[in-house]
Design a protein around this nucleic acid. Structure first.
Lengths: 305, 305
DNA sequence: GTTCCGCATGAATCGATAG
DNA sequence: ACTATCGATTCATGCGGAA
């Protein structure tokens, strides 16, 4: 059923997308082997079409056993970054996120920091009692106080204008910058880069990706990139246990890090593989009965359009 | 000792700064009489010089009885905005803020929303394991779901209102909009005019005020202004139970709202009065033995500089 | 090859309606 | 009364077609 043999050796998973439930898949991964876990799990009751939705009231109990596995496989010097946001239930912000922080501390995690992702383009809408939600949490957990951090790798040019500029750097922008560099104008660019670099803060200000039609809830690749550069060095191993369409794996690969991606949705596994390897390939999946992803009956018509 | 008689009548406190502990002073204020409570309490272990410092581990139990009084005096349609941020203790973010949210919900508060104040210029510094802290929480609590909110009063020009400060694009954008309006179809015209102003989001993006050095925890007046405009109308009553140097009272006055300010530190009471009334005046203080504010012995030298 | 403009599209939330 | 579903609302962004 599966084309790998040494389940206890992480090399079988190295640079692969694994199809399965991360809580089970991670049992095969040696303890203290991951340098960075960066993930954006399905939010409570969101992405119902693809994940079925986890009730807010059961979110913590759903997440905690997975967090225990994350803690086991993470190196003592490693970091776990959790991208999450509580939804509104009955007019109130639900408490599952802060409940989770407290429960994870009981598990032994250190709640080191909370970064803010200040989204530039939030979901539209108007309500009588609240404004649009324009931020998400990026919660940093660690096993030990002495975790690895490479602050110099994410330094930014001085000034807000530069920060905004950097945040906007898409793939095409980078290419354009390189082509400019060849024509003389690049000298100015490199001058800017060399001059007056400062450390960033714990607020990231960038736009969500709306253009990509292949997947519904991708964050911009800048987000995992930033944390991968900050918390790992070249050759390190990055894990995303809720891989989705593969943004984290893609970023890790581009930055010369190894990755392990786990995704429960077969459709997303295919998308991620295409994105990373440029073609559809056969990949190892969990050694269980292969469950075909099933579209909920009442959603089938909607999916078609 | 005090120059007011009817302690149960809020009119005695109206538009005044009261010197005393808010937990006791509020006992004299009628229930359901305040439209907005906006405050920035002493953070745990911060402002040791002026408040004596509350240990992070005891912050919640220190705050809760005060929150109970806030709930009593707040109108059912009123809002409580709490500006707070957890400090780092032993390499970790302390949990007193999220503990407080959970405990206040047990008190009957609704945790309606959490605004983020994205500070533009944060305190400089560098640490090996974290970046500069560039944001604070503005936590919105309510007694009822049907609270008052005046969204139109805080609308902002199209395009992110933070971006608007850079103001390079806004000029040309406006011109473009006008030229379009003059030549387009009638329906489109009204659409474009309507889009001149948009509602803000739950992220506030403003610079910290550097001018006010008299008060050690001064926030920019823009912050209370924004929430006063959003949650009160002219003639309403705003309470700040940890008044500090009087920014909230000053903003309320300027916006045509009534205010009640409470401050435990006599020095700040004087500063606030000077700021608001332009002169040093005799004001009612709590009907207790007048306690002169005492500088802790080991801090005296530090105060001098 | 640029620049400009139109258009679809989101980690959403509320309130009304229906069962 | 309580849950489930649906329509209405709204705006920054990036892509693609057009000038």
């Amino acid at each position: 059923m599966s084309n790998y043999q040494l389940k206890t050796d992480k090399k079988d998973y190295l640079d692969k997308i694994i199809h399965g439930d991360c809580e089970k898949v991670l049992l095969d991964i040696p303890e203290n082997s991951i340098d960075l876990i960066f993930t954006s799990p399905p939010y409570a009751d969101q992405r119902v079409k693809t994940y079925g939705g986890i009730s807010p009231d059961h979110y913590v109990e759903w997440f905690l056993p997975k967090a225990a596995q994350f803690k086991r496989v993470l190196k003592p010097s490693g970091t776990f970054i959790l991208n999450i946001k509580e939804r509104v239930v009955n007019g109130e912000r639900h408490t599952y996120v802060i409940d989770l922080i407290l429960k994870m501390r009981e598990q032994g995690w250190l709640w080191t920091e909370e970064f803010i992702w200040h989204k530039k383009n939030s979901y539209p809408g108007k309500w009588p009692n609240r404004f649009r939600d324009n931020w998400e949490r990026l919660i940093q957990f660690n096993k030990e106080k002495n975790f690895s951090m490479y602050q110099e790798s994410v330094m930014v040019p001085v000034g807000d204008w530069a920060k905004d500029r950097l945040a906007k750097l898409s793939e095409t922008d980078k290419i354009r910058d390189e082509s400019r560099a060849g024509s003389g104008f690049g000298k100015n660019v490199s001058n800017w880069i060399g001059r007056d670099m400062v450390y960033p803060t714990n607020v990231l200000h960038l736009a969500t990706e709306t253009g990509n039609k292949r997947h519904s809830a991708a964050f911009p690749s800048y987000l995992p990139e930033w944390f991968i550069k900050l918390f790992t060095k070249s050759g390190d191993l990055v894990l995303d246990p809720f891989m989705g369409s593969g943004t984290t794996a893609f970023s890790a690969l581009q930055l010369g890090r190894h990755f392990i991606g786990i995704e429960i949705n077969a459709e997303y596994v295919q998308i991620a593989n295409q994105r990373i390897y440029g073609k559809q390939i056969k990949l190892p999946s969990l050694g269980e009965k292969k469950k075909k992803y099933k579209v909920p009956a009442n959603k089938k018509s909607e999916r078609k359009k």
